[in-house]
Structure formats: C-alpha cells, structure tokens
C-alpha cells in the first residue's frame, strides 16, 4: 500500500473514531453531566482545602473551620489525598491527627 493510501486510511479511521466518540458521548450524556458536575465541586473543594493546608499541618476540624467545609467531607478528602500520596499524616493534636501536604519536586507533581 502506498504512503498516500496509508495516510488516507488513517484519516478515515480517525474520523470514524471521532464519530463513534460523539455517539458515545450522546448515549452517556446524563452520566457525563453528573460526573462533570461532581468533578467541578471536587476541584473547587480540593483547591480550597489545599490552599488552606499550605505548608502548615492541621487537623480535620481545624481545616473544616477554616474553609467552612463539612468536617466529614474534609476527612474524606484527606484520606483520599493520603491514598494518592498528596498528603501525609503528622503529629497528633489532642484526639486528632494533623495532616500536611506533600511537597513535590516540579517533575513529580501530578498535572
């Protein structure tokens, strides 16, 4: 097969895939919308939470008070960020553990 034909076939396949993806997006419209709304809230929450944490360690109730978020939601995010290596547990303050952001080298940071 000539290079010209190969390129033509590749373009055709790409076009077909684009069409398929479009159809799939249409099929899953409601779940995509739901997920997108959820992600938007999560991004907002995480931004507020991570900004508040900065370089200081804090307990979940302290973070909840400072951010106005529900404390149960804060501990849920902290446990999640800990699972993905974004947060580490620090010293205990009374009955609560403190949490601190992991400082990552620029190339390590997750985009």
């Amino acid at each position: 097969m000539s290079d010209k034909n190969k390129k033509k076939n590749k373009n055709k396949a790409e076009q077909e895939r684009k069409e398929d993806m479009k159809r799939l997006r249409e099929e899953r419209k409601s779940s995509i919308q739901r997920a997108a709304t959820m992600v938007k809230t999560q991004r907002k929450d995480l931004k507020v939470l991570m900004k508040q944490m900065g370089s200081e360690s804090a307990t979940a109730p302290e973070l909840a008070q400072a951010t106005g978020m529900d404390v149960a939601q804060v501990i849920w995010y902290l446990a999640t960020l800990k699972q993905y290596g974004e947060v580490v547990e620090g010293a205990k303050n009374g009955s609560y553990f403190t949490y601190k952001l992991v400082v990552k080298e620029p190339e390590e940071a997750v985009a």
Partner: peptide, 10 residues
C-alpha cells in the same frame, strides 16, 4: 488507623 469517619477523631 482507626478514626471516627465524621471528623477524624481517635
């Protein structure tokens, strides 16, 4: 570790 899910208290 074992923490209370509502606020992270031990």
């Amino acid at each position: 570790r074992v923490l209370r899910p509502s606020d992270g208290m031990e």
